[in-house]
Amino acid sequence: MSCRGGPDAWARCSVRDEKIMTRVHILGTGGTIAGQGATDTSSSYRPGSVMIQQVIDSVPGLDQLAEVTGEQFAQVSSQDMNELLWQGLANRIDELFEAEAADGIVITHGTDTAEETGYFLHLTVKSSRPVVLTGSMRPATSLSADGPLNLYNAVSVAADLEARNRGVMLAINDDLHSARDVTKSSTTDVQTFISPGAGLLGTARLGRIRYYRRPVRRHTLNSIFTAGNEGRLPRVDVLYAHAGMSPDLVRASVSLGTRGIVVAGVGNGNVPGPVVHALREAVEAGVRVVRSARVGNGDVERGVELDDDALGFVVSDQLNPQKSRVLLQLCLAHHLDSSAVQNAFYQY
């Protein structure tokens, strides 16, 4: 059955109809959700130790949500996630949807880089069907492990027809985030994921889903970007700004062959004067420079304290440094000029 409206006209609620079983395929990549500790109260553990079928089998009731299948795509800690795995995931998802092998996809993933993987998929997957990342802050063997319920909720979203056309999502701790907006905000807190500024897409709790909004920026089928064949994406470095920052790191990055630099700037994406000069030199050498911000929320605007037009810089708009890097890599891989790169940051 399904319900819409209720006391809040903007909210929608859906519960799986037991007569219609959709097919959800789970791609396991490792992470804390597949982690194993020495005891149920140990703070140390080995991520990616439990195979995806064991993770699936540990969650009661999944078979009431959908026809669930699993696949061990990778088995890594998320700090070891990389562009080759991103491309492989995007291509595998497209392959499954093109073959009509799944109605929705869930990816179990470590939390450290889930927002980067999610945003890459948000920009490159070519389907309106739901793709939902999930993970956990506590390993599978932990007292009060959060992974099983997170996976249950993620499957419920991936199985829901109302989840289509919302891009790639992250379902975790009863919250539903857009992959574009979400970021990790705490090292250990279970409620670590937030969507600054934009807010939640909705909530997902025990299979009951409420949607608050849809993403307004371009994604998936409306994106010009593709994952491409599995090969290294253009190198883009992120440089963290601070008081007294030296321009040497900029010059080192250029000398080592970077194609792009994202600056995690102070305030509104600012850097010290000598660094501005070094970044201008980088632009003249053919390197794309994007000004983002280290503060975690707000827009980086063009021409506020720096003359971005004269300097040849791109501003990140709302994207944090790590997501700015993802978008810039794709822009470079698709050979966009500086003006088109700036437009991409406004559109995606």
Rank of each mutant, 00 (worst) to 15 (best):
L151M: 09
H109C: 07
R232C: 01
H177P: 06
T258I: 06
H25S: 10
I172W: 04
Q342V: 14
R232M: 04
S44M: 10
D307M: 09
G286T: 12
R291N: 03
A278M: 07
G267A: 09
L151N: 01
G260K: 07
R213L: 09
L221A: 09
L149K: 09
S58N: 06
R280Q: 10
Q79S: 12
R210H: 14
M137R: 01
L327C: 10
W10S: 15
R302A: 15
F345A: 11
A285Y: 03
I105H: 04
T203L: 04
H25T: 07
T108F: 09
E230Y: 00
L149I: 08
S195G: 08
H122T: 00
T187K: 13
G265F: 02
D237G: 06
Q64V: 03
Q36S: 15
R208D: 00
L306W: 04
R217D: 01
L123G: 06
S78C: 06
S42G: 06
Y45A: 03
L200S: 08
R235S: 14
L306Q: 09
H219K: 15
T111M: 00
N320V: 04
T41W: 05
D94L: 07
E230A: 15
A34K: 00
E301T: 06
I33Y: 01
V314I: 14
A198Q: 08
M81Q: 05
A66P: 03
L84E: 08
L233C: 02
G267T: 03
E115Q: 09
R280V: 12
F97S: 00
E162W: 04
Y212P: 00
G244I: 12
G197I: 09
R218P: 08
L170D: 02
S246D: 08
L201Y: 05
D112S: 14
T187Q: 14
Y212M: 13
L256I: 12
N165W: 00
G28K: 01
V216C: 06
N153T: 09
V262H: 03
M51R: 11
G35T: 07
A102S: 02
R12V: 13
P47D: 02
N270H: 09
A34N: 09
L161Q: 14
Q79D: 13
V262L: 07
G267W: 08
G231K: 14
G88N: 10
T117R: 00
N229E: 15
E230N: 05
H25Q: 05
L330Q: 01
V155G: 05
P60D: 06
F120G: 03
R164P: 01
T203Y: 07
E230C: 12
S142G: 13
T134L: 07
S77V: 10
R251F: 07
V254R: 05
S255D: 12
L143R: 12
Q329F: 11
D307L: 12
R166A: 08
I172H: 10
S185I: 06
V266T: 14
P47R: 00
G197R: 04
V155K: 02
G147K: 07
N173C: 11
L256D: 13
F97L: 05
E83T: 11
V24F: 10
I52M: 08
L221K: 08
S44Q: 13
